[in-house]
């Protein structure tokens, strides 16, 4: 839709961005790539009176690693484009799960514009399940201060905040681990997700360990803790697989749309889990 009446503000830093947002009376939105918002507006969602553009902010545009308490952490600026994120050596080498997930988002031209921050801030982005499995943390500005929390907690927040950085702590090497991020769309590529499920199996000292997250479509991705708990600390040979997929089906709470019902999505999530389980078992005997 062609709308020219909207006022565009360009903020030089996050404090100014917040100030602008607080000072305008009418509707406003922070915008970076704008790829997701444009789709919503064209679909009839009311165009805001003010766009607060974050493109001029110099910080949060890079990917770097740090040593924090003897472990390596990877920091991804929220304003880094999905394409840049996708091909960055740190992501390719140390967070391949995230790289793979980003590779399934939209198409190359869109990924050149859209940012990782935008993908997360819309709360249904395809990168989120993988990030949840990687136990990602986020740095965000709530208007008063910059805070750090887990992505999982941040997704549950209702209040406005400005996402600044995604922090991934390098996982301990585990010989028998298997991680996966599967997106099932309506088409082979360039499609919204119907079901996205990501997870990581490993053998720890006290038995099997599973991290599992699922989203898809309008469903806000989240960890499936109850399913995880059924698996964790069990002996691999005696794991009650049917009970687990049964729990997954109960716990995963997808939102239906005109194309796929909840039941279908649940079934697919469970099937995908089974396939990955088998893959893991095959890989590690």
């Amino acid at each position: 839709m062609r709308t020219l009446e909207t006022k565009v503000w360009s903020a030089k830093d996050i404090y100014e961005a917040w100030e602008i947002k607080a000072s305008v009376k009418d509707s406003s939105v922070f915008i970076m790539g704008g790829t997701f918002l444009q789709t919503k507006w064209e679909n009839g969602v009311q165009y805001p009176d003010h766009l607060i553009h974050l493109g001029e902010i110099k910080e949060y545009k890079q990917i770097y690693s740090l040593q924090e308490h003897q472990v390596k952490t990877i920091h991804i600026g929220a304003f880094v484009s999905l394409a840049e994120c996708h091909k960055h050596p740190l992501i390719q080498n140390d967070c391949s799960l995230l790289a793979d997930s980003i590779g399934t988002i939209a198409a190359p031209a869109v990924r050149n514009l859209g940012t990782i921050g935008g993908n997360i801030a819309n709360r249904i982005g395809d990168s989120i399940p993988a990030l949840l499995v990687l136990d990602a943390e986020v740095l965000y500005f709530d208007g008063n201060e910059i805070k750090r929390d887990s992505l999982e907690n941040w997704l549950k927040q209702k209040e406005d905040s400005l996402l600044l950085e995604i922090i991934i702590t390098e996982q301990k090497a585990s010989v028998q681990s298997h991680q996966f991020a599967n997106k099932v769309g309506r088409r082979e590529a360039f499609t919204a997700s119907v079901v996205t499920i990501a997870g990581r199996f490993s053998i720890e000292e006290n038995g099997v360990s599973l991290i599992l997250a699922a989203g898809g479509g309008e469903t806000i991705p989240r960890r499936l803790r109850r399913t995880e708990n059924l698996v964790n600390h069990q002996d691999i040979e005696t794991i009650p697989l049917q009970q687990i997929t049964g729990e997954l089906i109960k716990e995963y709470n997808p939102i239906a749309d005109a194309f796929f019902a909840e039941d279908y999505r649940r079934k697919v999530a469970a099937n995908l889990f089974m396939v990955e389980w088998e893959k893991w078992r095959e890989k590690h005997g």
């Binding site: 064209e42 939209a106 050149n112």
Partner: peptide, 20 residues
């Protein structure tokens, strides 16, 4: 809405959708 590619151009040598 960036879902067809008919408006693809290069911006700073990267492919983008000119409608977005």
């Amino acid at each position: 809405i960036g879902r067809c590619g008919a408006c693809s151009v290069m911006m700073d040598k990267k492919l983008v959708n000119a409608c977005l």
